[in-house]
Computed example of a mutant assay.
Amino acid sequence: MKVEILYVDACPNSREAGERVLAALASVGRADVEIEYRVLATSAEAAASQFAGSPTILVDGVDPFPAESVADLACRVYRIESGLAGVPTVAQLAEVFRGR
């Protein structure tokens, strides 16, 4: 399994996304999976990727939380049980990883 986090430097949620991905991987017994981080610095880079706002988490090249791709270097919002947040929950991520 390949996990990649696409982010922009100005987004405060990229670090927490990485921490939650690590916790979710550990919870499903996949602590061996490495996370690749890719910073996007231009709108052209964002438009050329599956970027849906920062952070975008890709699993095997697919966004498990479908959203429209954007060319803007902006933060992303995820829907979680309690409303909206800048990152998915560990439980949501673990559910994604269980299926892989």
Rank of each mutant, 00 (worst) to 15 (best):
V70R: 12
L73P: 04
A47M: 11
D63G: 00
L93K: 05
P55R: 10
S54G: 04
L58A: 03
F65V: 00
E68I: 02
G53M: 11
V87Q: 07
P64K: 07
A91D: 15
S82H: 10
F51G: 05
S69P: 08
S82N: 07
T89I: 12
L84S: 14
S82I: 08
S49G: 05
G86P: 10
V87K: 06
V59P: 00
A85S: 15
P66D: 12
E81F: 07
G99P: 00
E68T: 08
A47E: 13
L58T: 06
A71L: 05
D60G: 02
P88C: 02
A67K: 09
A71D: 13
Y78W: 12
E81G: 12
R76D: 07
G99L: 11
L58H: 05
S82V: 13
D72L: 11
Q50A: 15
D60I: 00
G83D: 15
G86M: 14
Q92W: 10
A71G: 10
A71C: 04
T56A: 03
S49C: 11
R98T: 09
D72C: 04
P64C: 07
E68N: 08
V96L: 00
F51I: 08
S49W: 03
T89P: 07
V96Y: 00
V70Q: 12
G61S: 02
P66W: 11
I57A: 01
G83S: 15
A71M: 05
L93E: 09
D63E: 07
S69T: 15
G86R: 11
A74H: 02
S69R: 09
E95F: 00
V70H: 08
A91Q: 11
G53I: 13
A71E: 13
Q92T: 09
E81N: 13
V87Y: 10
S49N: 09
D72A: 15
L58E: 06
A85D: 15
A74Y: 02
R98S: 06
T56P: 08
T56E: 04
F97I: 09
G99I: 01
A94L: 09
R79S: 14
A94W: 09
